[in-house]
């Protein structure tokens, strides 16, 4: 139990290798959802939840089934995405039945999550380390996988929330007509990414 290692994994996943701003994963939702702060929060909650479970499933699938059988290299893409898609479907039904309030809050985001690359990326990374070029780990234990996934999910949420508040401000600015909407959002994302580049190498991550 090396707390230091957990901390580094989390820091890398959360900030330094931020899935949205540095790794360019899940950008469609980044630009699509961030038009309002409320939806960003809803999406973030849904993503944190789905990611944690998906990563657990794929980690188990890889370590107990695919790798022992030696078929991982051929089947990891279809099997992981299917696991995620199936889980999201089940979860949607489950939440709808058991927790209508929760369903109301994040229900509409669930179908979108299937094609959220961040979920697949994190789920694959914990199974096959090095997938998104994270230099900290070579093999994840299950707790490490959780820490990693939580970092990714939190990093996704934080970036999404911050971006949404920035866009709320930019929304009412007299941006040149050609830059209105997505172009200025990209410029903003660029400057956010620029601010994060300074953190590269923190604690040797």
């Amino acid at each position: 139990m090396d707390l230091n290692r957990y901390f580094l994994i989390f820091l890398a996943a959360f900030l330094i290798q931020n899935i949205l701003l540095i790794r360019f994963i899940a950008l469609c939702s980044f630009f699509g959802i961030s038009t309002s702060v409320e939806t960003s929060v809803g999406m973030s909650l849904a993503v944190i939840f789905v990611m944690m479970v998906s990563s657990t499933l794929t980690w188990a699938l890889w370590n107990f089934v695919l790798e022992p059988l030696g078929i991982g290299e051929f089947l990891y893409i279809p099997s992981f995405i299917l696991v995620i898609a199936a889980f999201v479907q089940l979860e949607e039904l489950f939440i709808k039945k058991t927790a209508p309030a929760l369903y109301k809050a994040m229900g509409i985001y669930l179908p979108l999550i299937t094609t959220n690359c961040a979920v697949l990326a994190a789920a694959t990374e914990v199974a096959k380390p090095g997938f998104i070029k994270l230099s900290v780990a070579y093999h994840y234990t299950l707790p490490e996988a959780w820490v990693y996934t939580f970092g990714v999910a939190l990093g996704y949420s934080a970036a999404l929330l911050v971006f949404a508040t920035l866009r709320e401000r930019i929304d009412i600015a007299p941006v040149p007509p050609a830059m209105k909407g997505y172009p200025i959002a990209f410029i903003t994302a660029s400057l956010m990414s620029l601010a994060l580049t300074g953190f590269a190498g923190l604690f040797g991550v």
Binding site: R169, I170, A173, P174, V175, P176, M179, I184, I187
Partner: peptide, 8 residues
Amino acid sequence: EIFGGLGY
């Protein structure tokens, strides 16, 4: 300026 100039 691309954000709308001074203050934005």
